[in-house]
């Protein structure tokens, strides 16, 4: 088309291309390190000094260096990795199962008024029943093995994914669906090629919410009875008065959580459902 218009429209800023923050970060890495590193460094400093000055009991709250030393040796000996892997396996399996169940159901509920009306009272009741309240029941029925723990995770993660799928699908711009129909797409193609991709950012947010829920209930379940897993490790360390070990387990939990959230955000950007502006 006419060059003049192209030039004119070009003048509009293109959001994602030139982020000033990225440019600054590339130019001054020291500034970035200072900006993001100050608060963590300050916290660690307080953690180190407070027990040493006896502001808190060093027995129940050992200085950071002591915990870090213990954590390091537990890491090298393979104890922490073994427990972490047990937890990660359960959380991952539960999360994947829940996604596989909740996304299709969510699409179905958004598509069918009847299904939505029929299921909504039950869904509301379950959604408002804390998974932790159900923990003893799950343990009774399914035992203390893997099945009960993965089931717990599925139950806890199912709701955020389902609700976000419903919200995401309902929020899909009607004109996109109309355009798809005008292009001759079938009902199934409309769902797979338009509705799901358009709802994906919202569904993905649900999956991220679900992940924190997964670790929350899993740790509780592992504390309730298990032979491996970070929840079990933290609980048994406390029972055996291995306080630095206990904090090492908690640190490992934070690390695992951070790692998975970061991995999900990266995955989201990679498949294009998250914009670069979403904080990791």
């Amino acid at each position: 088309m006419a060059t003049s218009e192209s030039v004119r429209t070009m003048a509009r800023p293109a959001g994602r291309i030139a982020s000033p923050r990225a440019a600054r970060g590339a130019a001054y890495p020291a500034v970035v390190a200072l900006k993001y590193g100050t608060m963590p460094a300050l916290l660690i400093l307080i953690w180190e000094i407070a027990p040493r000055l006896n502001l808190v009991s060093p027995v129940f709250f050992p200085p950071f260096s002591v915990v870090a030393h213990t954590a390091w040796s537990l890491l090298l000996s393979g104890v922490l990795p073994r427990h972490a892997m047990a937890s990660v396996g359960r959380a991952g399996a539960g999360l994947m199962l829940a996604t596989a169940l909740a996304v299709p159901l969510g699409v179905g509920i958004s598509a069918s008024r009847l299904l939505s009306d029929m299921l909504s009272p039950v869904l509301e009741a379950f959604r408002n029943t804390s998974p932790l309240a159900l923990l003893p029941a799950f343990t009774l029925v399914l035992g203390i093995g893997e099945v009960s723990k993965v089931t717990m995770v599925v139950y806890a993660t199912f709701w955020p994914i389902l609700l976000n799928t419903i919200a995401g699908v309902r929020g899909v711009d009607r004109v996109l669906v109309k355009a798809g129909r005008a292009m001759g797409l079938s009902r199934v193609q409309l769902v797979t090629r338009i509705v799901l991709p358009a709802a994906m950012p919202t569904i993905f947010t649900g999956i991220r919410l679900a992940m924190s829920a997964a670790f929350l209930v899993l740790i509780a379940a592992e504390m309730n009875g298990a032979r491996a897993g970070l929840g079990f490790f933290v609980n048994s360390a406390q029972a055996n008065f291995q306080i630095p070990e206990m904090y090492s387990g908690i640190l490992a939990l934070s690390a695992v959580g951070l790692f998975f959230n970061g991995a999900l955000v990266l995955l989201g950007r990679r498949i294009g459902v998250l914009r670069k502006s979403v904080a990791p």
């Binding site: 996109l176 109309k178 355009a179 005008a182 292009m183 797409l185 193609q189 358009a198 294009g272 459902v273």
Partner: peptide
């Protein structure tokens, strides 16, 4: 059909959007 609200798939590039129509056809 061309709509007032453009009806472009936001997750696809300009090229991807034109290819989308071709794939549908």
């Amino acid at each position: 059909v061309v709509f007032q609200q453009y009806a472009l798939m936001p997750w696809l590039t300009a090229l991807g959007n034109v290819e989308f129509g071709l794939a549908a056809a």
